[in-house]
Nucleic acid binder design. Structure first.
Length: 164
DNA sequence: GCCAACGTTGGC
DNA sequence: GCCAACGTTGGC
């Protein structure tokens, strides 16, 4: 584990962009654009190359953490904010001082079995996760090192059930 | 499809 | 600065 490495979670609706879409992308990379919430943007700006990112499927059955990506490029201006035809066009953003940023992430792995929201709720160690807070909508959020460790433990535990 | 929770907008 | 109205998110 690299010193200073941080952990994050990003949400995506699989119908819009799934972990399989990421795995199929050119060089298995994508720009995480379209974030239009200041708190989420600030977390994007705090991301560093090599940070590990949990990939969460919202509006899915069941909603689950489905895999891992990693940050391969730190925050830089999100081009879609200046594109009149883009869904997330922001006429209020000044090109001289862009309001919204994006990062590039690369596929790392897809879990053998997704970790459902229900399963996550059962873990005492994960009680403080932003994701599990009622009404939480933050699409980019930090994950504590302990939580990361617990999630990896769960993934390995579940994978072990299918091991030969 | 419902609706609670939340963020943003804009009138005052 | 207040706050009602509105739009969005996202679990269920």
């Amino acid at each position: 584990m690299t010193e200073g490495q941080q952990y994050w979670l990003v949400k995506s609706e699989p119908e819009a962009f799934s972990i399989d879409d990421l795995a199929r992308s050119t060089r298995q990379k994508t720009s995480w654009d379209g974030v239009r919430n200041y708190q989420a943007r600030n977390f994007l700006r705090a991301m560093r190359m090599g940070d590990q990112v949990l990939f969460y499927h919202s509006n899915a059955n069941p909603p689950s953490i489905v895999g891992i990506a990693e940050v391969v490029k730190a925050a830089y201006p999100d081009a879609t904010q200046f594109d009149k035809h883009a869904t997330h066009y922001d006429p209020g953003s000044d090109p001289g001082r862009p309001r919204w940023d994006m990062v590039d992430i690369r596929f790392v792995r897809k879990f053998t079995a997704p970790l459902s929201l229900n399963l996550l709720r059962e873990q005492a160690v994960l009680k403080r996760m932003e994701l599990l807070r009622k009404g939480s909508r933050l699409s980019v959020q930090p994950i504590r090192a302990l939580e990361w460790k617990e999630i990896i433990r769960l993934v390995e535990h579940i994978a072990g059930r299918y091991a030969v």
